[in-house]
Design a binder for these strands. Structure first.
Lengths: 171, 171
DNA sequence: GATGAAAAGCTTTAAGC
DNA sequence: GCTTAAAGCTTTTCATC
């Protein structure tokens, strides 16, 4: 299980991924669509070695089972005016549940946030953000974190480069 | 500029994103394809308010200019047997350029690595990985990092949850 | 640079194995 | 669960604005 439903409900409209294990064909479909989500169904079928109608059915089933969670275009950050990336570790001060929930609802949706990691250990959250300049970075932290009373401590680290990995499929 | 070409060549087959600024139509195309990379070109055209032939031309141009860097399917990590995520901060010991390059070539491509952040500050790299269990996590760190002589220190933090952000487009 | 029309190609459904 | 075939859409090209 990923996130046991203790205390908080599941996000609306999402069923947990069905327990059926993936067969080789499903894994090849995932691999192909991770590589190029915009390939045609016919190309996909050929790549995987099945009929187009089968490819379509399988792909649909993977989406309906929640195994494929979406298809997204990746964009060059510099081209959209966000050439400065940073990782910001955040320790919260209070451990009042409502305040923490307010932080968790607000911060991950702020403009420039690429991902928020809720972590164990000394740091509570790690924010991966992208902004236009180091001046904007300073202002971002001041405006969005430093002024929040629930935030105890932050530490900002510049990211020189983000290197994508080989992805989540078994090697 | 994103990564000045000092010392190392540009990755093969990539031209830097052309300096032409994005107009409103381009930004709406990006927003739509970030939201759903598999929508048809016709849907995209309608959503953006242009003719299908124009949508196709613009989308192609965005890819050719390197502004769209790819289209990828997102998969549920638990469904592919990787329900445990971790962030591993890595400090290197030696500052010998060849050893660092060997590390940088090897580690980001290891099975389970979702992303590698090359960072400024006290930590040199932060690895975001996904594995099947905490036992696998322990073994992963031992096998891939602890035994590498160039690695000085690592610190592993469990990720309870990774919350996707609103993405990189200006709000 | 954007559009509309026509040809080529793709997706989708349903019936059959 | 897979395949085939046919109808309906979509993509793509290109002449035109």
């Amino acid at each position: 299980m990923t996130t046991p439903s203790i205390g908080r409900p599941h996000p609306a409209g999402q069923h947990p991924p069905s327990g059926e294990p993936l067969d080789e064909v499903d894994r090849r479909i995932l691999a192909a669509l991770i590589e190029d989500a915009r390939m045609t169904n016919k190309q996909l079928a050929e790549m995987v070695g099945i009929a187009p109608s089968t490819a379509l059915m399988r792909t649909r089933a993977l989406s309906e089972r929640g195994i494929i969670t979406g298809f997204e275009a990746k964009v060059d950050l510099a081209a959209v005016g966000r050439s400065v990336q940073a990782l910001i570790s955040v320790r919260l001060r209070a451990h009042d549940r409502d305040q923490i929930d307010a932080f968790t609802a607000r911060v991950p949706q702020l403009a420039g946030v690429l991902a928020t990691f809720h972590t164990s250990g000394a740091v509570d959250y790690l924010l991966h953000i992208a902004v236009g300049s180091t001046e904007e970075l300073r202002d971002w932290v001041l405006d969005n974190l430093a002024t929040d009373p629930v935030v105890g401590h932050t530490e900002t680290t510049l990211v020189f480069e983000r290197i994508p990995g080989p992805g989540p499929l078994p090697a």
